[in-house]
Nucleic acid binder design. Structure first.
Lengths: 232, 232
DNA sequence: TGCGGTCTACTTGTATGGTAGTGTGCATGA
DNA sequence: TCATGCACACTACCATACAAGTAGACCGCA
């Protein structure tokens, strides 16, 4: 979400703030946080902070242990795999329905986004790059007519993004990702559905595969495949 | 969710209760509810009830208007379409990955579920039928190894189920649904992936199409395709 | 009769106090 | 030295009080 522009109320503000801290790794996975402490930092009472944490727990970004504490979810491989599965399934299904539906204006908008990404790449602006990446995928999904399903993708994506942030220092691969975006747009414009979906699939897989590399480089943030003792 | 067995705490209890009231149409779409009133009924204070409503708002099952009130979400066609898209995409993608992975024990479990559904059909027990339906689809997804993505499907499914409940009086079609389940299991067991996915797709589509019929019969619960003035 | 302002009842939002449960560290004793 | 029990500090959970805002009823007036 690029636009956290409208602080509808204090809770929404707190929620955006805390989620950002988690996804950007400012709050590192596994670290303990407390309602009191966060409330103090943000300048609110415990109530809106607590409500935010409940929502974040629903997103699996934090784990609340009753009477014990709240901690930032460790990056669990199975969780990432699930997020990848959800994202990939929804984006590919949407793209398949988009073939032949995309208007010239929509294609233009996608091209504008890839251009903007190239500019961000040259500037080395990884933050903007990530924001544009988000916009691109959202716009792509919107063409299918299932834009409102982006909410679901966004939740899954949060887990992936958190892991990806660990590699944002290595900006060398941004060019590759942009060209993969472009390949999807070009195939979509030409009406080549198979090519579009296969391009998008390999793009999403590449992002996913990068994470496994990241894991080897930053094992401290990754948890063992714990079975949390919770029954399904 | 068949098992609301473990009342982990008061809020989880309230959440299950309220969600059930909504999905079973005990709280009709569009009707206004209040934190105080619900708290009184359940026998809790506003706090856990309020937290439950926040979560339900995130699921789009209720709409909270600040300082005005909370109302059960009307059944909006676009919302149902999105839910259908999410459910269909995830279940089909999972099934495609399940082909060749299903163990004999898993196939047996699926067959046991269809048998149980036939029994429920004979008894005319629609509640049990719905619960078994849920179990069946969850078990099917679990085989793919992406069982934890069922959470996501479950949220989408809640919207669909609510609309389906309107037709639970017409139990005549339960037999058809069961045989569609069986067709999926049989194809999966035989390793015929294409047949399995196409069977599941037509099954899910049938459920979806039923809803459009329901709409014509119960227009009062359906809202016009309102653009709620909310920017994406 | 119709219009306008005010007042009240009710809503959700936020702050705060008390409760129950958990983990930790320290003192005590073997 | 090590094990054990206990007190304490800390947590999230829930209840309650207060604040901010809205909608509608009601009354006065033109």
């Amino acid at each position: 979400m690029r636009a956290a522009s409208a602080p509808r109320n204090a809770r929404a503000h707190a929620l955006d703030l805390i989620r950002q801290k988690i996804v950007t790794m400012e709050l590192s996975p596994g670290s303990q946080i407390s309602e009191n402490e966060l409330a103090g930092q943000i300048g609110l009472s415990r109530t809106p902070v607590r409500e935010s944490l409940i929502l974040l727990a629903e997103e699996r970004l934090v784990v609340v242990v009753p009477q014990v504490g709240t901690l930032v979810s460790p990056i669990v491989e199975s969780e990432i795999a699930t997020s990848q599965f959800v994202r990939e399934s929804l984006e590919l299904a949407a793209l398949a329905e988009s073939v032949g539906r995309a208007t010239p204006a929509q294609i233009m908008a996608l091209n504008a986004l890839t251009d903007a990404q190239r500019a961000a790449d040259k500037r080395g602006d990884t933050e903007d790059f990530f924001a544009l990446d988000e916009e691109f995928h959202a716009a792509l999904m919107d063409i299918s007519g299932h834009g409102s399903a982006w909410r679901t993708v966004g939740q899954a994506k949060a887990h992936l993004d958190r892991a990806r942030r660990l590699s944002l220092t290595t900006t060398s691969q941004m060019g590759t990702l942009i060209e993969q975006h472009q390949a999807v747009v070009d195939a979509l414009e030409a009406g080549r559905g198979e090519e579009a979906t296969s391009s998008l699939r390999s793009h999403l897989r590449k992002v996913f595969d990068d994470i496994t590399v990241i894991r080897e480089q930053n094992p401290e943030y990754f948890a063992a495949p714990v079975t949390t003792g919770r029954r399904r």
